[in-house]
Simulated scan of single mutants.
Amino acid sequence: MDKDRVRNLIITGMGSTNGGSVYLAKIDGNGTVTGDLECAVFTVNGRAHMHGSVKANSAEINGTITIEGDLIAESIKLTGRAIVKGKCEAEKFKVNGRFEMDALNAGNIQVTLHGGSSVVAEIGGEWIEIRKPRGIAVTKLLNALSIPPFDKLKAQTIEGDDIYLEYTMAEVVRGSNVSIGPGCEIELVEYKTKLDLHKDSKVSRSTQI
């Protein structure tokens, strides 16, 4: 997308606007966008309500966002909370916080759990890591955003090549190399090569496929 030939979408403070095709979409404050949005760079600092789908090269969200449609980007970085009513697709998906969505599909998925339960029906990826917080800096930032400490992730199916899970509740986990860390409750694990199971987690059944 040629940034010299398309407009930018900027909301500072409180405001609303229509979607469309732009180079930069930036919300600093509390913004509402009506309709689908397509952009190269999507940035939110504060709160955003998107009445449509969002498609971007890169998406960075610091705060809270609700997307009534899909979220599709090459790279997604979230610090805070996201509610996506549709599916989420990315090459890289990195979250410090909480999210709710129908389906998540990404090559590289890295989730640090904060702020209550995260809920997603299906997760698919090549490399999947879900864990509790590490370090003080991230915790301080989330506290500043009024997001409480980490909780669990709840999913129906998690499928990938290399999987590491902490504090996750799932019906089925399926992968090549699967590591179940602390705080997990899994009904069925299907693995091809290796399964590691933490003593503080519960797996009802496991099978090598």
Rank of each mutant, 00 (worst) to 15 (best):
M1H: 10
M1E: 14
V6E: 09
R7S: 15
N8L: 09
I10L: 15
I10K: 13
T12H: 08
G15Y: 11
G15S: 14
N18V: 10
G20W: 05
V22W: 11
Y23I: 13
Y23D: 11
A25I: 10
A25P: 05
I27K: 04
D28G: 08
G29W: 00
N30M: 10
V33C: 08
T34C: 15
T34F: 14
D36A: 08
D36V: 11
L37Y: 07
E38M: 10
E38Y: 07
F42I: 08
F42T: 07
T43D: 11
T43F: 05
V44A: 07
V44K: 12
H49N: 14
H51I: 09
S53L: 07
V54D: 05
I61A: 04
N62S: 08
G63M: 04
T64W: 02
T66Y: 02
L71S: 05
L71Y: 02
I72P: 02
A73T: 02
E74L: 02
S75C: 04
I76K: 07
L78K: 01
A82N: 01
A82P: 00
A82T: 00
I83Q: 06
I83S: 06
V84E: 01
V84A: 03
C88E: 04
C88D: 01
E89P: 00
E89S: 05
A90N: 00
N96R: 03
G97L: 01
F99H: 00
F99Q: 00
M101D: 03
D102L: 03
L104V: 04
G107Y: 00
I109P: 00
Q110M: 13
V111S: 11
T112C: 10
T112P: 02
S118F: 02
A121V: 09
I123K: 10
E126R: 14
E129L: 10
I130A: 04
P133K: 12
R134Y: 11
V138N: 13
V138A: 15
K140I: 15
L141S: 12
L145G: 09
L145F: 15
L145S: 10
P148E: 14
D151G: 13
K154R: 13
A155N: 04
E159H: 03
E159K: 09
G160L: 02
D161C: 09
D162T: 10
D162G: 06
I163A: 08
Y164F: 15
L165E: 06
L165D: 09
Y167T: 06
M169K: 11
E171N: 13
R174Q: 13
R174H: 13
S176I: 05
S176K: 15
N177M: 05
S179C: 01
I180C: 08
P182R: 13
G183C: 14
C184S: 11
I186M: 05
V189E: 15
E190Q: 14
K192V: 11
K192H: 11
D196F: 07
D196W: 04
K199P: 01
K199G: 05
K199N: 07
S204N: 12
R205L: 01
Q208V: 04
